[in-house]
Design a protein around this nucleic acid. Structure first.
Length: 304
DNA sequence: CTTAGGG
DNA sequence: CCCTAAG
């Protein structure tokens, strides 16, 4: 039995989101120190490494890489590693499902809101890096790490979070500066644990990439064939009522890419190949509903 | 909040 | 995926 080595390289680690608060009078040096302390505190605590393949977490640790689908020929679309606080043991006792990087229970507790999404993947785990496997044992890495930006734009205009029954976008942490009072701490700086955004600072975190599976595409196409391309709210409700991710805007965007995908040569397509049969249906439906929409507009003009 | 498109 | 002007 061949046992080829699956070589992987992690291009870079995105530091988990850190919370830092300090007075405006603090210096850049103070800022650096505060961030350093937050980082050290995080690393000092025990963390877990979670492995995700194409957005789905791999829970069965007894699986071999090959069985899990992490093989050279397994056209790995995206292998992700995330660091998670060792707050709540997922299920079993010790040494269970994860690799414990560090077993140090430091003093102050940096809290990371554990907002789970039922059966879905915890969207607020820390995305650390992405690795991609290539057919020939070559490996690239998704340079697009969606992690915390600790550079300049640490803040943006407040976003209106949809608070409906769905469309839940956690994003509890971000590096923010408390413009308010100077906490009483050794040097006026303080690494504080916060639950939300006390100062009303926008918590914007890019969502993790979740490539549509062929099965999902199938469902989407089915829905669009029935409902058309102008009622994404309904498409979402009919095709992905339970998927917390996959908002109607996502579905609309996916349809857009599908239409495009169907128009380009197969060799130019990326990701898991979508059956040509499905792409044909995409074109059919797209064509049909586009014409339908044109007719609608004609009617509207007649009325006017 | 939903549509509809550009970014 | 994100951002947003319009509706």
């Amino acid at each position: 039995m061949e046992d080829t080595n699956v070589k992987l390289s992690i291009k870079s680690f995105t530091v988990p989101e850190l919370m830092v608060a300090l007075p405006e009078s603090a210096t850049i040096a103070n800022l650096k120190k505060a961030v350093m302390e937050a980082a050290m505190k995080l690393l000092g605590g025990s963390l877990h490494v979670r492995v995700l393949l194409q957005g789905k977490k791999i829970t069965d640790e007894s699986k071999s890489l090959r069985q899990a689908g992490i093989s050279i020929d397994g056209k790995l679309d995206s292998l992700d590693f995330m660091l998670e606080p060792n707050s709540f043991p997922t299920s079993s006792s010790v040494g269970d499902g994860f690799l414990v990087l560090s077993q140090n229970n430091n003093q102050q507790t940096l809290r990371y809101p554990a907002l789970s999404e039922g059966n879905e993947i915890n969207s607020d785990s820390f995305h650390v890096g992405t690795i991609q496997g290539k057919p020939q044992g070559f490996h690239e890495i998704d340079s697009n790490n969606s992690g915390s930006e600790m550079q300049s734009g640490a803040e943006r205009p407040a976003k209106n979070n949809v608070a409906g029954n769905e469309l839940v976008v956690p994003g509890p942490c971000a590096l923010v500066i408390h413009p308010n009072q100077a906490h009483n701490s050794p040097n006026g700086l303080a690494v504080v644990p916060f639950s939300q955004n006390p100062a009303g600072v926008s918590t914007n975190k890019r969502r993790m990439r979740r490539p549509f599976s062929v099965a999902e595409v199938e469902v989407l196409v089915q829905a669009v064939e029935k409902l058309g391309t102008g009622r994404w709210r309904d498409v979402k409700l009919h095709a992905f009522p339970q998927a917390k991710h996959r908002t109607y805007v996502d579905l609309k965007d996916k349809w857009k890419t599908l239409v495009h995908t169907a128009s380009i040569a197969p060799h130019q397509r990326r990701g898991e190949p979508v059956p040509q049969g499905l792409l044909d249906r995409v074109i059919q439906a797209h064509s049909y509903w586009t014409a339908q929409q044109a007719k609608q507009q004609t009617v509207e003009l007649k009325i006017l």
